[in-house]
């Protein structure tokens, strides 16, 4: 069975390189020393306590959650409209419009952030977490559209027609047939856009006007060496939360697929 030992080694090294550093995080988060270095000094939870006690963290977390939840909701809703319309309807200029919707996917974030900043200041809009949400929606919508387009595409058109044929209106058909069947796609889209938003730094930094936002806050704390271990503690919690969230989302996605007897075509991307 060892037909490609080279490939196997490569895969192992690749995975180590990818996840090794993340494993370091909890190691030093529980290490009883303010300097991040080996040898380990002993077990402690004081970094967690220190992190927990910082009111700025809670402000940043609250702002970030507001931003990420709003972004995920808005871009998923916009994504539903765009994907549905591009899959199901014909309208003039569709390729151009869809192209422009997807463009932020390849635009350098820095450029987007700078131009947004200039425009917003130019038209006199005060920077706040709302401007961050705007920027994030712009960035995240293409991801939502991409995920949802494939969800809508895999929907058999005659299901809609069957519902119409059986007396339902276009609106109730959407609610009763289409929405439940694309729900796994909607969940995926929500999760991905949420994740992109919560750790996004450039737009948050440019458009956040100094409001505490998680990514900006963490970056700021790293300037003080004494704060690093408590940031590692925060990172450990974030990794844990991500894993739990992913597991829940995957559970619902699989259940959705199993319930409709569909084929599992892999993860949510």
């Amino acid at each position: 069975m060892n037909r490609a030992p080279g490939l196997k080694t490569y895969a192992v090294i690749y995975l180590l390189f990818l996840y090794g550093p993340i494993l370091i995080l909890p190691l030093f988060a529980f290490n009883d020393a303010s300097i991040v270095a080996f040898p380990l000094a002993g077990f402690t939870t004081k970094w967690f306590a220190e992190m927990w006690a910082d009111p700025n963290l809670w402000k940043a977390l609250k702002n970030s959650l507001i931003i990420a939840l709003s972004t995920a909701t808005l871009s998923t809703v916009l994504g539903i409209f765009a994907a549905r319309s591009s899959v199901r309807y014909k309208w003039p200029g569709k390729p151009v419009v869809m192209g422009f919707i997807m463009l932020p996917l390849v635009l350098p974030e820095m450029i987007v952030a700078m131009s947004l900043l200039i425009v917003l200041l130019g038209i006199g809009i005060n920077l706040s977490i709302f401007t961050v949400i705007m920027g994030h929606v712009l960035m995240c919508t293409p991801f939502a559209v991409a995920i949802l387009t494939s969800a809508f595409q895999s929907l058999d058109r005659s299901l809609e027609e069957a519902a119409l044929d059986l007396g339902e209106s276009a609106a109730s058909t959407f609610r009763l047939i289409i929405l439940p069947l694309v729900m796994p796609g909607i969940l995926s889209s929500f999760l991905i856009t949420f994740t992109i938003s919560i750790d996004e730094f450039i737009v948050a930094n440019f458009l956040g006007s100094g409001q505490p936002i998680l990514s900006v806050y963490i970056f700021g704390q790293f300037r003080f060496p004494a704060k690093v271990p408590s940031m590692l503690a925060l990172g450990t919690i974030l990794v844990g939360v991500s894993v739990v969230l992913l597991a829940i989302a995957e559970y619902f996605r699989r259940r959705g697929i199993a319930r409709t007897g569909g084929k599992d075509t892999g993860g949510f991307l």
Binding site: D156, S158, D165, G167, L181, R259, G261
Partner: peptide, 17 residues
């Protein structure tokens, strides 16, 4: 949805959920 006809689709269009 207002016609007195009903259809059996080629794909059957059974609602999978």
């Amino acid at each position: 949805n207002a016609r007195p006809t009903n259809m059996v689709f080629q794909s059957y269009a059974i609602f999978p959920h």
